[in-house]
């Protein structure tokens, strides 16, 4: 079987397994980021282009907590999403909330602008080449899986983000709060008539979506260079993920996130030059054949 795989793919099987696993790890980041985007789009109808900057802020806040307050990785995992989420709440209250009556495009432009400004401020303050952040001692080291060397930290990223994705899905699909959220998406005035404070719910949803981005940022801090443009490259891919999965579909964005991570990982072996393009090719094909996305409802 293994030899058969090797013959048809032309790549040694251990390498192929390794690449599949690495694809899943990258997919974990895509899934967490697209999850936040999907939650925000589902309820607010805002395409949150600040998401990349908020991912970056998560990583930077983790660095600041360590450098300025001596709070390490585990503290940052809780505090950074709260802090960045709170800034999201402020942005929603002060600016985004004024745009709900207008076309999608305005929200997109506003959040894109806010993202650029946040990035600019961090670049001015911290430069572009980045800051060091170490893998926590408990998670450093690696397992020898036989077919590859698996850093413990990367394993942790996959498991942790799966748990978060599952928890978010459960909250939205299986709890009373989630039911309110879904109802408000369908018909906000009606839900408000039942005595639910919809504007507050919207604000908190935006904050939660932003917190998810920041959480992904904390997870990324030890393995990628913590720099102001770290979200820019990732976020374009994540938007493609959301579009392919179906705008606003929670489960769709999670499955597509992991799936596309794997597709991208395999492209990196067979045709590395195209690894940045492959996701957009898939996006084009999906949009042509299923305009609502793989999991979206037209």
């Amino acid at each position: 079987m293994l030899e058969f795989l090797e013959t048809i793919t032309g790549v040694p099987t251990p390498l192929l397994f390794g690449q599949l696993l690495l694809g899943l790890i990258n997919g974990a980041f895509y899934a967490m980021l697209s999850l936040g985007l999907a939650v925000i789009f589902g309820l607010l109808n805002i395409i949150n282009f600040t998401h990349g900057a908020q991912f970056m802020m998560g990583a930077f806040v983790a660095w600041m907590l360590l450098a300025w307050a001596g709070i390490g990785y585990w503290g940052a995992l809780i505090l950074a999403p709260l802090i960045v989420g709170a800034t999201g709440v402020v942005i929603e209250r002060l600016m985004i909330s004024r745009l709900y009556k207008l076309d999608h495009l305005y929200g997109l432009l506003l959040t894109f602008g806010i993202g650029l400004m946040i990035e600019g401020v961090f670049r001015n303050e911290f430069g572009s080449s980045g800051l060091p952040y170490r893998i926590p001692a408990e998670l450093s080291g690696a397992w020898d899986l036989g077919f590859m060397f698996m850093p413990i930290y990367r394993g942790w990223v996959v498991v942790f983000s799966l748990v978060i994705c599952l928890a978010t899905w459960l909250v939205i699909e299986k709890t009373r709060l989630g039911a309110y959220l879904r109802a408000a998406t369908e018909n906000a005035p009606l839900v408000q008539a039942f005595g639910v404070n919809v504007p507050r719910m919207i604000t908190l949803t935006y904050g939660a979506g932003v917190a998810l981005a920041a959480l992904a940022g904390v997870l990324a801090a030890p393995i990628y260079s913590v720099n102001p443009q770290m979200g820019t490259n990732l976020i374009i891919v994540v938007f493609a993920v959301v579009v392919i999965g179906g705008m606003g579909s929670i489960l769709g964005s999670v499955i597509t996130g992991f799936g596309l991570g794997v597709v991208e990982g395999l492209t990196k072996v067979y045709w590395p030059e195209a690894s940045a393009t492959v996701i957009f090719v898939i996006m084009a094909i999906v949009l042509l054949t299923r305009p609502a996305g793989l999991f979206g409802r037209a």
Binding site: M148, F149, N233, G265, K268, V269, A276
Partner: peptide, 21 residues
Amino acid sequence: QVRYPFPATTDFSSFVVQAQA
């Protein structure tokens, strides 16, 4: 050698593992 897309690449683990192999 592997040639990766610039500047759109963040994760280099795949290339590092290919180098190892």
